[in-house]
């Protein structure tokens, strides 16, 4: 066994001697100089400038992107612009505020810089009127019916109660469609009492109707009672039918 080790060792020594003996014997060709590129990595490119002029436009106007890049193999801008020269300008027409990203590349790496063009979007056109209330506020109010009263009274009669019940539904719908509407609930009297007393009586009639409407769920904070006493007459004959026309509450637009 020991002989085996000795032989192997001798062989290894002989081989080593052979190899070193060969090297010196055969002249090797001059090694190629190592490539410069591979040897020292180049610096990443520099984006000296990347601006949008102006940086804020109205929709439909243009902005100019201007850039200066040094040391890049390839320069590109996103948003569909693509590869560009190392320095240059490009007019853009963004529809909305857009951020442009410039990417400069070379073997040393890539750098990016972004610039944003703010686009002022014009206010949207007035929204189309909701289709439900086809009639104007005035037209809707004109459809409200008057409620009538007995002479020198402000109690709600049966006919007045059905008139006001009808008005209550209409008023709720009006206030739903015209949330900012405020209406006058005018109280009127026939010409027979004194002007002074009728101012008070007209107010009583308006308040009486308001209370009735309130009980039906109408938002009466949107109704303003105004007494016109006997100062505004719809009918001027000295007949009971005409007097009756004047003893009423009447809705009107107004503040």
């Amino acid at each position: 066994m020991r002989k085996k080790y000795v032989v192997l060792s001798l062989l290894a020594i002989a081989l080593l001697l052979f190899v070193t003996g060969c090297k010196k014997k055969i002249p090797a060709p001059a090694p190629l100089p190592p490539p410069v590129v591979a040897e020292t990595k180049p610096a990443a490119p520099t984006i000296a400038t990347f601006v949008a002029e102006p940086s804020s436009i109205d929709r439909g106007q243009s902005s100019t992107l201007r850039w200066v890049v040094e040391g890049a193999d390839e320069v590109s801008i996103n948003n569909g612009i693509g590869t560009v020269m190392a320095s240059g300008t490009r007019q853009v027409f963004p529809n909305n505020t857009t951020t442009y990203v410039l990417t400069a590349r070379n073997a040393g790496g890539s750098v990016t810089r972004s610039v944003t063009v703010n686009v002022n979007v014009p206010p949207p056109p007035a929204p189309e009127k909701p289709p439900a209330p086809v009639a104007s506020l005035q037209e809707r109010v004109n459809q409200l019916v008057d409620a009538y009263f007995d002479y020198d009274k402000f109690g709600i009669r049966l006919d007045a109660s059905s008139a006001l019940t009808q008005d209550a539904d209409a008023l709720k719908s009006i206030f739903r469609d015209f949330p900012s509407a405020s209406l006058i609930l005018g109280g009127y009297c026939d010409p027979r009492g004194s002007a002074e007393y009728n101012m008070g009586l007209g107010d009583r009639r308006a308040r009486s109707a308001m209370e009735f409407l309130s009980n039906l769920g109408v938002d009466t904070s949107k109704l303003r009672p105004v007494s016109y006493g006997k100062e505004v007459q719809t009918c001027s004959e000295a007949t009971e039918s005409c007097y009756q026309m004047n003893r009423r509450v009447h809705f009107a637009t107004g503040n």
Binding site: E196, M199, G200, D203, A206, R224, P225, V226, S227
Partner: peptide, 9 residues
């Protein structure tokens, strides 16, 4: 005037 729907006479 007082805050009221009517101040008169």
């Amino acid at each position: 005037n007082a805050v009221a729907s009517m101040n008169a006479t």
